[in-house]
Amino acid sequence: MSNTRLPGWLSASREFLIPLLALLVLMAVWEASARLFAIPEYLLPSPSRIVEDMAAMGGQQLGEHMVATLRTVLFGFFLSIAVSFPLAVLISSSRLAADAIYPLLVLTQSVPKVAIAPILVVMLGPNEMPRVIVTFLVAFFPLVIAMTTGLLAVPSELIELARSCRASKLQELFRVRLPFSIPFIFSGLKSAIALSVVGAVVGEFVAAERGLGYLITSATAFFKVPVAFGAMLVLALLGIVLFQLIVVAERVFFPWAAAEERR
């Protein structure tokens, strides 16, 4: 009995079509429930009402809020990469450094970011820098852990082979440890980009003049609940798009690492 195979284009787009179909079903159930049970819009607005209010706000205004949040997310994300890589290399290369740095990393994560954000605003002023730092603090910890785990997960046989070929520490890092740790690094990058969106919104809740987080707080203050829901959905969409960009980058530049993760 022969197996029925899906067409190539359908098989390739399966990962996109199934979540999209599930989302459409969810929206349809949401819309029907809001209308059938006459749920007040200040409790749970229907998707059609959300779209209507967001359209009335204007694309230019919504775009300005999106760009402001996206800029904070990307600044914080790339800053987390710039700091996490040298920290991971230092931790993985020295037991003494690991013992000294790990408690400090845990300390940065034990303090709620909502408590840090107002202090940063007082120290640095009501500009974008406090929001970027909050985003960085939220995103960099899982990235450091993932990078360190990957650098330490290299089989000892590969390290011994590199050293028998008289490879320097730098060659060992870039030719052995880093290629082996690519799946770990991209796993950390995916977590970091998702958390960057959360960190940016936390910063905007505390002090911002624009951004999707600011839009949520200002809309709820004036009981414009559909607009707040719309901003929340845009945030979710932004997080999904950024996450998928990391996935695509991994599959394009490191297809073997993406195949390893799917096992």
Rank of each mutant, 00 (worst) to 15 (best):
P103M: 03
A28E: 11
L44N: 04
E160N: 11
R71L: 09
A28K: 06
L137E: 04
R71Y: 00
T149P: 00
A97T: 02
S187E: 05
L215P: 05
L245R: 03
I50G: 10
L23H: 07
P126C: 10
R35K: 06
L26E: 11
P47I: 14
E157K: 04
M232K: 05
S94V: 08
S187T: 14
F141P: 04
S164C: 12
F222V: 14
W9C: 04
L43R: 01
P112T: 02
A139N: 06
V25Y: 09
F85W: 07
R35S: 10
Q109K: 10
S2V: 13
A207I: 10
L24V: 15
V89A: 05
R95T: 02
Y102N: 08
A167Y: 07
D53Y: 08
L124G: 04
F78V: 07
R5P: 13
I193P: 00
G63A: 00
F85V: 13
V138D: 02
L74Y: 00
P130Q: 01
M232S: 15
L238Y: 04
H65Y: 00
L105D: 11
R177P: 03
R163S: 13
A115I: 11
I246M: 11
V227P: 04
F140G: 03
P179A: 05
V197Q: 00
A28Q: 13
V201R: 06
Q244Y: 15
A34M: 10
N3C: 07
K169H: 13
N127G: 15
P112R: 10
F174D: 03
T217A: 12
L189S: 06
V67G: 01
V144M: 07
L178Q: 13
F253M: 14
A32P: 02
E41R: 12
S181N: 01
G125H: 07
L36Q: 11
L158N: 05
S48I: 12
L151H: 10
V51G: 08
E209V: 11
R163G: 06
L235C: 02
T217D: 08
R263C: 09
R166W: 09
G58K: 02
V111Q: 02
A97C: 07
F205C: 12
S92Y: 01
V121C: 10
G211Y: 05
E261A: 14
M129V: 10
F75W: 08
V227Q: 12
P155D: 05
F75C: 09
I145Q: 02
I159F: 00
L233E: 13
Q61I: 13
L43E: 03
V51I: 14
C165M: 15
E31V: 01
L21F: 15
S80M: 00
W9N: 15
L17V: 10
M54F: 06
A200M: 08
